[in-house]
Design a protein around this nucleic acid. Sequence first.
DNA 1: TTGTCGGCAACTTGCCGACAA
DNA 2: TTGTCGGCAAGTTGCCGACAA
Lengths: 671, 671
Amino acid sequence: MHFKEKHMMMGSVEEKIKTAGLVGGVQTNLLEEMKLLKEIKDHSGTRKSINSELWYACAGPLVSLPQVAVSTKRTATSQIPNYPNLPSQLLCQVHNVALHADKDTDEIYAQMSLQPVNSEKDVFPIPDFGLKPNKHPSEFFCKTLTASDTSTHGGFSVPRRAAEKLFPPLDYTMQPPTQELVVRDLHDNTWTFRHIYRGQPKRHLLTTGWSVFVGSKRLKAGDSVLFIRDEKSQLLVGVRRANRQQTTLPSSVLSADSMHIGVLAAAAHAAANRSPFTIFYNPRACPSEFVIPLAKYRKSVYGTQVSVGMRFGMMFETEESGKRRYMGTIVGISDFDPLRWPGSKWRNLQVEWDEPGCSDKQNRVSSWEIETPESLFIFPSLTSGLKRPLHSGFIGGETEWGNLIKRPLVWLPGNGNGNFSYSSIPNLSSERLFKMLMKPQEVNHQICESAQQEVSAAKVPSLDDVKTMQGIVNQMPQLNQSVVMSVGNQNYSQFCSNQSDVPGELHPPCDVENQTSDGVSIERLKSELDHSTDQLSQVTSIGECNEEKSSSSPTNLQNYNNQLQFQNQNQAQLHAQSSLWPAQPLLEPPVLHPQQIIMPQADSNTLNGSLPFLDTDYEWISNPSSCTPLPGVFGSPGSLSIFGLQEQSAILSDAINPSIPLMNQDLWISS
Amino acid sequence: MHFKEKHMMMGSVEEKIKTAGLVGGVQTNLLEEMKLLKEIKDHSGTRKSINSELWYACAGPLVSLPQVAVSTKRTATSQIPNYPNLPSQLLCQVHNVALHADKDTDEIYAQMSLQPVNSEKDVFPIPDFGLKPNKHPSEFFCKTLTASDTSTHGGFSVPRRAAEKLFPPLDYTMQPPTQELVVRDLHDNTWTFRHIYRGQPKRHLLTTGWSVFVGSKRLKAGDSVLFIRDEKSQLLVGVRRANRQQTTLPSSVLSADSMHIGVLAAAAHAAANRSPFTIFYNPRACPSEFVIPLAKYRKSVYGTQVSVGMRFGMMFETEESGKRRYMGTIVGISDFDPLRWPGSKWRNLQVEWDEPGCSDKQNRVSSWEIETPESLFIFPSLTSGLKRPLHSGFIGGETEWGNLIKRPLVWLPGNGNGNFSYSSIPNLSSERLFKMLMKPQEVNHQICESAQQEVSAAKVPSLDDVKTMQGIVNQMPQLNQSVVMSVGNQNYSQFCSNQSDVPGELHPPCDVENQTSDGVSIERLKSELDHSTDQLSQVTSIGECNEEKSSSSPTNLQNYNNQLQFQNQNQAQLHAQSSLWPAQPLLEPPVLHPQQIIMPQADSNTLNGSLPFLDTDYEWISNPSSCTPLPGVFGSPGSLSIFGLQEQSAILSDAINPSIPLMNQDLWISS
DNA sequence: TTGTCGGCAACTTGCCGACAA
DNA sequence: TTGTCGGCAAGTTGCCGACAA
């Protein structure tokens, strides 16, 4: 006699697991996280009341708890203390950045050690030895797993181009051609996959070894797997979970308020004592930056006059790990949390998105997250453009800025980082953008393969506009000095030679010509626009829109030098005005109020301060990341990392408006 | 052509998982947790440096991080602020206790909402409706899973007695007898098992459905599974993981220091504002209590004169979810953390254990965790004896107190809770203990089945001793008033009728006879000893030592009434002296210093204050639990539970002595 | 009484090309 | 170009009593 009901039972169990497991949608979204948190709370918590006998049985014979009368349901209203001495932003020196990955989930996060400083004069000069730039790999592919990829029925279907680009060449004389791939993950575990090229029609497959990987990483359809080839040409494999599934959600032990208080108290203590503290930063788990590079912050606050009705662009990640810009309009400027942090700039812009599919996006952003006409042309590299536009995985179609921005455009010629215009253009049709910009009447919509993109034209800025903007820029003393990151020339050149198709010397000496900003030639404007196009690039999917557009020729060395000049000139101007700064202490600038933590990079005065450093710095600056806001104090040896960051939002939402949990992410750190 | 290396690959992966996964030993041990934390940190953290290209690939194209020079390795020494206004202990009212279980791991924890109060006068009187006592189930069995139980090769072998006691009766006319068991877990998930009685020799097995359960709960050999039958006779199943494996360990996002600071700041804020806050309490994850019932705390501080050289006993849980007392000697009394919390009583007793196998046990305990001769005979039920001695699962052999304690014993006659002596004796050979106590020369070691137990004799206390102890007791004004829990008579009687073999009326009216404490009859002493025996019971394994000893006859009603009297008399004395208390404010009693949080139960004045309530109160008091010390603030709707509590210790250890991480668990809450 | 094993049947996994989108 | 499927062989799971601790 056999018992045939196993499947039924399993079915019911799996169903429940599903219910509990995956809640979120496609886009990383704090609101989703909040929902999930509530869900968790509801599931593991008070609502579905736990069987207390079983609970005590599990607890063991020695455990008992205090009791209270059921009728005494006085709600324990949480009270989070105010930290009146904690300003809304902190200027911090970065002491350390460590990359981590959760052992269990492979979720990545970074740990930063920050020290609040009184002013930039306190910033510790950092020597430039041994630094490597942030490395977004160029040899890269990312695929969202299909049902077949994750089923037990078969292996992994490798996109042809990916296999050809990343995997070692197959011996096609074999029948069928196969090879053994040995790849490592973030924890340095080794995985072995059989790679075979077979079937009719032929395709690349990973067979043996794949299912073990899927099982171990607990991958599900919708998760993504990515392969990169590192600088040593070693194959590495990474995992990105579909949003919301990314973190196993442990309940208990530290209350949300306690975490919130801990973060605030740690920051307050560190600020009061100018002592270091640590934040954990999960770049994929939170949609809004709270750690902001100082230069970027300043630029957004002093360099851009945002106003209601202003058009803007903002970068988001595409499904296949590309980037794409979404356009929107500022519809309001108001405090995110008027009670606790009035006057804070964090997410004080209410926005509307152009496309109907943007309902999953925040309707509040911070000014440093967005691109405005001014921001593009004062410091193009400061806005969230592509840092390393040659990552083929990251580059897609293009979008034009044009008259999507309805305010008068201010084209500031001659600035920008020369290296960008020199090394980053090949994928972009700069000619096309240039033409669009010169013909503002061409407003239309255009389809680039699968991705829909907006293309429009722009008004050419007048010289008056240019002068106005420069006045604003001049309110930023020491901008480059305090912001520039300390990255060695040597590494920078590695970086560049990776990125550029042009071999040979990439770093001409910094021969500064004194040129005024109104000495604008078409040639230079064009090179500037090349750069802007880069910034405006809109990614669709790997190897679709991209590849036919990667034929544009690099601009010439003259353009590069021109831009070097402008940058240096700007820098000199700023230095000249640096004495203004101390009169306006950083921690309480007139336009800023509470609860925002500003974190600058180390001082770059000691560096041989030419453009490579600026670029590397801006590289950090230029990436508006989806980031994770749970600052905390750095604990030395046994220090624990807890997952989290949802908590931050949970905390804040609890305190103010439980029904709009998103609205209270008020602690952040900028630099 | 087939690829035959799959097993090799899997093996290597599994090996790594093992290395990372399971570190601890058998005993719940903070030290183990610390080791594990370090292990985690080492694995996911800085030491094994993460491939930054892969990290950035996983992070996505929009993410970049600040950079610092490698040479700038200034250690970010964590600085935890002092909270000078936070006393070492807080008197709190309990507002709420909620039972939770981690959705993922089934790990249990409780959430308590506490409000610091200035004095007991501020304690809110709680009506007694609807309360149920803490329920340790009586219909219960717990089995540690064997390799066979968890292998894929077969099912679960059910211990015969467990099957016969808990499962519905099988129809033994069937060939073979089978039934379908439907059980629920803590999350109210339903599991279906086929229960069959087969084989030669016959045995009970769970077959179909079992492996799904094992897989879903990720059970491994060494974990325990437990079945209980609740008050509605429903079968429930629970899980207890082998220690250390119990929590999936997510890394990141909130730093240990931040958590620590959060806890301290939350407590300090709550204390300063007398506002509620919340702690999470994981009774199985931490070996030392930090939330202490007020009565128990007071008793240990005022009622027991601990001194170096003093003998004591302390309860620990046995493998099969029983209890057993270990004996030891106090070898020192000193501050656990002289720098931060000098004078704190938390774990200020240095101890040595008698048995060589106790190396896994703490060498520091708090006075309220231990049983001393005084504690036993002033308030027998205050010490960590059995609350519900009839839980057959929890009751085992017996151990005698006797002259294991070398200081003069003080036998206080006529106290104790009558209900205990009335209803709780059947399993214990009170005659035997009585004889042992009367013959102090009989010191020997004796084997009771498989479990070794110490049996010894005691000196009968003199009347002078008795008077001395009563003087100490009198220093505890309002003891019963402030401590007694509000539990309804009705529920208490349910409780008792569950526990007692004696049917009928268990709660005689409280006819108080005025009797002096020196009116000691042999009869009463004997009943007292019965109770003590209960408290001294030493559990071996279910149904081994226990069952042949469960034949002792219950003491008679007269004894019960006598003890009622003593208790009430004591209570009256304490009330009379309650005016002394305000002169010695609770938060700064002369003997106590910093960082200890005291949490009392609600006031019981409004209750019909006879013995049942006392007992229920003591029930909470009497359980020295392995507990989890991550207090925090209660956040309302979206409040998050984070796993944790290891952090607490991590935090503290970091700050003071990284090499002795255990030594810094300094935040606690008592009541 | 119960943990582990060999035997064996039922079931699942995983490799293959076919086919279709 | 690649997602899903039927076919089929290899591998795993899980039920059984035997046996031994």
